[in-house]
């Protein structure tokens, strides 16, 4: 038994930590989808840009400046993307906005490629969370433990925000019925901006945790975590924040179990297989609400 635990504890720890990081990205997806019905394909790339920001800013500034500045910059980028690429298409068919999202993702990746010269960059070490600790028989980085805790704290705060503040109420209203809430005098654009700001903020935090663990930053580093986080959001029921978080943890842990079993080639494929199974048998996910198509 002890042997079994000591053999498998590292997988479990890796699963939980990566799950928490997916969760932080997934919230951005699920909130945007809940309000705009848009898969924000650029979200994974915003996550990567945050990492590059950190790399470049940390080279010239002390951590206590570069860290908040990275978050501010990421939030600004998220807002800018929304303004430039999604807002003009608000009344266009959904397909057009999605294509625009794909275009933004393509642009951001090429831009990062250009700026960095396409080489992997080392992520700076953030004191304390990058330090190593031993748990039972496994050795790991502090970030592995910090991630799930921080994720849960942030989620609880977010849920409070949505439940108890005015802007939260507006967000709920908009995600329930876009047109009606617009008629009711809710400032749609403001609500959407706040949504993107929150999503980008969490992506920036997620990026710090993720890249403290996996330190190589490349222009496409965020693509896979982004897609997986999206799958997590669908899995948990798109539009539902607790759903996204639980979905993310399940996917993170399942992925590492697959690796432990020696099916490493299929660890990405598994995530997508899970997605398809969910879409077929329970399209609304674990916690999603059923949406009825109106004629």
């Amino acid at each position: 038994m002890t042997e079994f635990i000591s053999a498998n504890l590292p997988y479990l720890l890796a699963g939980i930590s990566v799950g928490g990081q997916y969760a932080l990205i997934a919230i951005g997806y699920t909130m945007v989808y809940g309000i705009l019905r848009l898969i924000n394909f650029a979200h994974g790339d915003i996550f990567t840009v945050a990492a590059y920001c950190m790399v470049y800013m940390n080279a010239t500034m002390p951590l206590y400046i570069s860290l908040p500045l990275t978050i501010v910059f990421t939030v600004a980028l998220g807002l800018a993307v929304e303004r430039v690429a999604y807002k003009p298409l608000r009344d266009a068919p959904r397909m057009s906005i999605m294509i625009s999202a794909i275009g933004v993702s393509y642009l951001l990746q090429n831009l990062m490629w250009y700026v960095t010269g396409g080489l992997a960059q080392q992520y700076p070490t953030i004191p304390w969370i990058s330090s190593t600790i031993s748990i039972y028989t496994a050795t790991t980085k502090m970030v592995t433990l910090v991630t799930p805790v921080l994720t849960l704290v942030l989620v609880v705060l977010l849920v409070q925000l949505i439940k108890h503040t005015k802007i939260g109420m507006a967000m709920r209203a908009v995600s329930r019925d876009f047109e009606t809430s617009r008629l009711m005098g809710i400032k749609i654009n403001g609500v959407i901006s706040v949504t993107f700001a929150i999503g980008s903020f969490l992506a920036a935090v997620g990026s710090m945790l993720y890249f403290s663990n996996y330190t190589a930053v490349t222009p496409t580093a965020g693509a896979m975590p982004g897609l997986k986080a999206f799958v997590a959001a669908v899995f948990g029921g798109i539009g539902s924040i607790p759903g996204a978080v639980i979905g993310a943890f399940i996917i993170g842990i399942a992925e590492n179990i697959i690796k432990a079993l020696g099916w490493t080639a299929f660890s990405d494929a598994f995530t997508f297989a899970l997605l398809i199974v969910i879409l077929i048998f329970k399209p609304t996910g674990l916690f999603g609400e059923a949406v009825h198509e109106k004629v």
Binding site: A7, P10, Y11, L13, A14, V18, T140, Y210, N213, Y214, A216, T220, A221, A223, M224, N256, K259, A260, G262, T264, A265, D268
Partner: peptide
């Protein structure tokens, strides 16, 4: 491991 992998803990543990 596939291209784009960033988590090698599982492999190393193995």
């Amino acid at each position: 491991f596939p291209l784009g992998t960033s988590d090698f803990t599982a492999y190393l543990t193995k």
